[in-house]
Simulated assay, not measured.
Amino acid sequence: MHWFYLVLAIAFETIGTTALKTSEGFTKLWPSVITLGCFFTALFLLSLVLKTVPVGVTYAIWSGLGIVLISAIGWVAFGQKLDLPAILGMALIVAGIVVMQVFSNTAGH
């Protein structure tokens, strides 16, 4: 169940970050409300994950997948450019997560 909570936490964090972009520095009400609600929910879910998964592993997955997802959203929704070094860097992040999950004994399986 902890992996499901982590996926949900990443999803809420990604939605919250997207809303943060549209909140224009917390000057727009509804994007600001969505941002705060999503961040609160993401942190609550993350706290549940940390009961069973080591903090380093949890944070590596949380931040790594968050970077990839929010970069993809930035590209699709906001026209942010992703050059080859950025794409390669994100591929290395994903590869690192996979290596950690498949080969590491610290992943909390």
Rank of each mutant, 00 (worst) to 15 (best):
S32K: 00
E13D: 01
G16K: 08
V49K: 11
G25W: 07
L65V: 13
G66P: 05
A77W: 12
I61W: 10
K51N: 14
F39S: 07
H2V: 04
V49C: 04
W75K: 13
G66R: 06
L82A: 10
V53D: 06
M90P: 00
G25V: 02
G66E: 01
A91M: 13
T41M: 13
F12W: 12
G66Y: 08
F12H: 08
G56P: 00
F4K: 05
H2D: 12
A60L: 05
G74H: 07
T17R: 05
I34L: 15
L46F: 10
G37M: 08
S104Y: 14
I34E: 09
V76L: 10
F78S: 06
L50H: 10
W30S: 03
M90E: 01
G25A: 04
A77S: 13
V49D: 09
F4W: 05
K81P: 09
W62Y: 15
V53G: 08
G56V: 13
I73F: 15
W3T: 00
L8I: 10
L36I: 13
T41G: 04
A11G: 12
A107H: 13
S23F: 12
E13A: 04
V53W: 01
V53P: 00
T27L: 09
L88V: 14
S63H: 06
L69N: 03
I61A: 00
T106E: 15
E24C: 03
Y59Q: 01
Y5W: 15
L20S: 07
P31Y: 11
L20A: 06
V33A: 12
V53F: 04
A9W: 06
L84M: 14
S23A: 14
